[in-house]
């Protein structure tokens, strides 16, 4: 990533895109507790927000965790402070995608595999994972 923005502005951009206030989080861990992929998401939701609170935004943007979020919304639904991590993850993905980053490169998909995958999944997948 070579966009020359300072980290403070980047965090503000994440807050603006997601309409969430990072400082509201009091690190209770409830989001991680309810996340269906919480065991494999790295960083899991509460630690992801902690990274943002500490200004370590690039670590989060470069992580695998933000791409694993299925937007099931349990995190935001259960949060005692009303912070919706699913939206924050979405904002992080948007920043990456707008900079032409692709989590999944269409060119790397092998033809044989495509016969198993429904068309709708392709469309959704490209929208979510390809810049």
């Amino acid at each position: 990533m070579s966009t020359p923005v300072d980290d403070g502005a980047l965090i503000r951009q994440i807050e603006q895109l997601s309409d969430q206030t990072i400082t509201d989080c009091y690190q209770c861990g409830g989001c991680t507790a309810g996340c269906p992929v919480g065991e494999i998401m790295e960083p899991p939701p509460s630690r992801a927000i902690r990274l943002l609170q500490l200004g370590r935004v690039h670590e989060l943007l470069d992580s695998q965790g933000i791409w694993l979020c299925a937007s099931c919304m349990v995190c935001g639904n259960r949060c005692p402070r009303g912070v919706d991590y699913a939206k924050i993850a979405e904002a992080c993905r948007a920043i990456k995608l707008r900079a032409k980053y692709s989590r999944v490169d269409p060119d790397t998909i092998v033809i044989d595999e495509t016969e198993e995958i429904p068309q709708q999944a392709f469309v959704a997948g490209f929208r979510k994972f390809a810049g």
Binding site: Q27, C28, G29, G30, C31, T32, A33, G34, C35, G38, E39, P43, P44, S46, R47, V74, R78
Partner: peptide, 22 residues
Amino acid sequence: SKVFRTADKIVVWSADTLAGEK
């Protein structure tokens, strides 16, 4: 975040934020 039953045990979904895990 969640409390439910499977067979004869209750399962509690929580987190260990100090270890950074679910």
